[in-house]
């Protein structure tokens, strides 16, 4: 049976308005609706000026992240029926500048991501004829969890450290650095170390753990950062004992 609910949606046109405001939309939703369906319904049936991002509708592309009742969520997999509140508050992801309504500017993240070289680095390129870089299931299991990141930026939105200091490299980028450091085919740990162990790299993380809590793909960025801290700190200690050996 259809039910009524109210969506309180953040509206903001930074070029034209000095302050953001909230607009309420009363909608009849279906039990199977996710928040993104409701926003789509509003856009097509009630108010075509509302702006938000989405693409895959199946929790893969990472573009529909928003703050739902105060929590960063992928709106394409967040069911309205799971909220018992009278109204559901929809805001853009926190800690990012707003371009318009629920659309945030992701430039900071896009600039940070390549700084950790999130790709396979090898000392020498193998000729094609030499075949694939083989890997055992156990070797893959070491990094697989950290490879599931879809760059949705929910972790940045949840991270209080990033909220206070936007220079912090941040959870997703650092988790990806660890993903490649752990890959048996990769030889780029040293190359990544300058950025990863910089003042605003891993050491800024205070292990609040919110990134891991909100990650829709169970990546555990907080765990990845702790692993990075341990391995780089031990390398640092080794370099004291055996100069020339550390990173």
């Amino acid at each position: 049976m259809p039910e009524q609910t109210v969506l309180e949606v953040y509206r903001y046109l930074p070029d034209e308005e000095t302050e953001p405001r909230f607009q309420s939309y009363e909608i009849t939703y279906r039990d199977s609706w996710v928040v993104l369906d409701a926003l789509d319904h509003i856009k097509t049936e009630i108010d075509p000026t509302l702006s938000f991002r989405w693409s895959c509708r199946m929790g893969v592309c990472g573009s529909c992240g928003m703050t739902v009742n105060g929590e960063p969520k992928l709106t394409c997999e967040t069911f309205i029926r799971d909220y018992n509140t009278e109204t559901i508050k929809i805001e853009p992801l926190a800690h990012f500048p707003v371009i318009r309504d629920l659309v945030i500017n992701m430039q900071d993240f896009m600039e940070k991501l390549p700084t950790v070289s999130p790709w396979l680095i090898t000392d020498e390129d193998k000729p094609l004829e030499a075949g694939e870089y083989l890997q055992t299931p156990a070797q893959m299991a070491r990094y697989k969890r950290f490879s599931m990141c879809i760059n949705c930026m929910l972790c940045y939105s949840a991270c209080p450290v990033y909220g206070l200091n936007s220079l912090f490299t941040g959870p997703a980028a650092l988790a990806l650095a660890e993903r490649y450091n752990l890959d048996s085919r990769d030889e780029g740990t040293q190359e990544r170390s300058d950025v990863v162990t910089a003042h605003d790299g891993i050491w800024r993380c205070t292990y609040v753990g919110e990134c891991t809590k909100v990650c829709p793909k169970d990546v555990d960025p907080a765990g990845a950062i702790q692993m990075l801290k341990l391995s780089y700190a031990l390398d640092w200690a080794k370099s004291l004992v055996l100069p020339g050996r550390g990173r």
Partner: peptide, 18 residues
């Protein structure tokens, strides 16, 4: 972006973790 390793942080973190 130029970044260089934080030289003191590993010591502080190792003592903290220990």
């Amino acid at each position: 972006m130029t970044a260089k390793p934080d030289k003191t942080a590993p010591l502080f973190w190792l003592l903290f973790a220990g």
